[in-house]
Write a protein that binds this DNA or RNA. Sequence first.
DNA 1: GCAGCGGCGTTAGTGTCCCTAACGATACGG
DNA 2: CCGTATCGTTAGGGACACTAACGCCGCTGC
Lengths: 157, 157
Amino acid sequence: MESDDAGLRHSDADTPERVRRQLSRLVGMTAGQLRKAAGAALAEVGAHKDHFVVLASLAEFGPASQSRLSDRTRVYRSDLVAVLNDLEAAGHIQRAPDPEDKRRNVITVTAKGRCRLGELDEVLAGVNEHVMAPLDPAERDTLFALLARVNAHLADG
Amino acid sequence: MESDDAGLRHSDADTPERVRRQLSRLVGMTAGQLRKAAGAALAEVGAHKDHFVVLASLAEFGPASQSRLSDRTRVYRSDLVAVLNDLEAAGHIQRAPDPEDKRRNVITVTAKGRCRLGELDEVLAGVNEHVMAPLDPAERDTLFALLARVNAHLADG
DNA sequence: GCAGCGGCGTTAGTGTCCCTAACGATACGG
DNA sequence: CCGTATCGTTAGGGACACTAACGCCGCTGC
């Protein structure tokens, strides 16, 4: 076994070394696969990533206008409209005009919506479990922590 | 100090916990920022991610047909055409008909192309340095290793 | 009052990736 | 030869991130 650096020899034999060194490549590939996995799992129950994020934000932080929801979820106001249309049609949220400011809508989770959130949460928990299967709990934590640091560092660069 | 798990409390105060737990979210956000950073740096010298990947593959593994190049670089054959058009117009590669099979082209790096590759490599080294600035060498290695394991695991799932 | 600025929800459109479909040309196997 | 498969190429679809503009309303100041 001339395996130098054991676990560090990652992936593809016919990917050039210069390319393999690029963090953006590795993260990008992983992101793509994670997006696919989560997207497919959510699609199976007729949902979308943004549906989950919006429901979670409403459930954890309470009702909000669409604008504030957009800020909290990082779903663009333009895209949020369609998401809320879906959720409203399914009875998961309620869109009511704000009596204090007629420009705004007040978005509220319904009981059905909280139930839906629980469902989506379970689906995604399954995905996470599958995705992080090869990592033990400590490794999962370090992965999160390292990514978070890189992420935070880039967020204010 | 009620700081539980110290370094693990990552990022956004108004992101719901359920969402924060999703690896796909964290990886996705990071991927987006890395893509932006690398894309912008390459754009400043008039290049594209795929230009780099193609040049690197040719330089490391030698000439190839477009089809094999596509396999090696994971750039789709359809998209590869435009990339090779660019590189050929700039004199970085040579597109010659394969005498052994008139369907194929043989793609070869020129000297100018190797020089260009060096330039792009430096640009990206700078990006990597900037991006991974908050991590020490050991942490960078573990980040790569962990991502590679997740990635490899998803690749054959 | 009312005029102007700015935030609200909404519609439409842009650009970039990743990916598929089909086509003419060429190779290859029966 | 005839059918099938592969090559480079063109065109387009679909998801995602993002911008522009519009009509509506609130707010401030004159």
